[in-house]
């Protein structure tokens, strides 16, 4: 489905001292991390901790307040931002939280859109490619359906097919399991894992679904709202079993009480 070729460089994404936010209000401060080729890095954390904001900065939808982001070596936060973004856009795919399929186009047309726009392939070959992509995500029989006619899981899979249309080297996913039942979410995770293993696609997956994290992540970056930044980086099993940070333990063990100080007893009786 993607491009089966060795990556040109090992470091696919490098964020350095990244401060992002809306207006002058930072959501994340001084975030630094690296994603290597072939990794599936999950960015996790509670609601409102800045996961989606970080993703927007990584794909160039918002300009960071400070710091830099390099995708495949191209700095997308510098003075030549537009040219850098232009140079990386053919190499990245984005799976949005709710698919973001164009509602006025059929599933096949959605997948064909980037192929028609950015390649000079003949129409028949584009049609074959679209069929192949949709077949890979199990939607070949739904090619002519409109997005509104599909279930949430099917829309996500169709969006994955579109995100992979130009065979990207890096795939960004914003909460792929959000709103899906456990089985559909697991199927989507398997699909992502397959794309990573078979095609070597580097992935950055924003999620807070523990099952997804444990199923697909080679490494996790955990963000925290109060810290406004990264509080832990590591393999999911290490974070779950060996982290000393109560916030990390609370997240992985689904026990908010681990983050609270011991509850004091009610006022003494007189």
């Amino acid at each position: 489905m993607g491009a089966l070729k060795p990556p040109a460089e090992d470091v696919m994404i490098h964020a350095e001292g990244l401060t992002v936010g809306y207006g002058e209000r930072p959501v994340l401060k001084d975030v630094t991390f690296t994603v290597h080729a072939g990794e599936i890095v999950t960015v996790l954390g509670g609601s409102g901790c800045g996961k989606s904001t970080l993703l927007k900065a990584l794909i160039g939808l918002i300009r960071p307040l400070r710091g830099s982001v390099r995708i495949r070596g191209a700095c997308i936060t510098g003075s030549d931002r537009e040219a850098a973004l232009e140079s990386i856009r053919r190499h990245i795919g984005v799976l949005f939280q709710y698919g973001a399929l164009l509602g006025s186009l059929s599933i096949a047309d959605n997948v064909a859109l980037p192929l028609e726009e950015f390649t000079d392939l003949p129409r028949s070959l584009i049609a074959d490619l679209v069929h192949f992509k949709l077949d890979t995500v199990g939607l070949a029989d739904y090619a002519h359906f409109m997005p509104a006619e599909l279930s949430g899981g099917m829309r996500k899979r169709a969006a994955l097919a579109r995100a992979m249309a130009l065979d990207p080297e890096i795939l960004f996913c914003d909460e792929p399991s959000a709103g899906l039942d456990p089985i559909t979410a697991a199927e989507l995770d398997e699909l992502l894992l397959e794309c990573n293993r078979a095609l070597g696609i580097t992935m950055v997956v924003i999620t807070h679904e523990l099952a997804s994290i444990e199923a697909i992540a080679t490494r996790c970056i955990m963000l925290d709202k109060s810290a406004q930044g990264i509080i832990a980086v590591g393999r999911p099993e290490d974070l779950k079993n060996h982290s000393a940070d109560p916030r990390v333990r609370a997240f992985f063990h689904r026990q908010p009480s681990l983050m609270r100080p011991e509850a004091a007893s009610v006022a003494p009786e007189g």
């Binding site: 927007k56 160039g60 939808l61 990245i92 973001a100 164009l102 950015f118």
Partner: peptide, 17 residues
């Protein structure tokens, strides 16, 4: 506006449109 709410405009932007 609805396309913006549904992130379709963002999707077009990151695809390079």
């Amino acid at each position: 506006g609805t396309m913006k709410v549904n992130e379709e405009v963002d999707a077009l932007t990151v695809m390079g449109f």
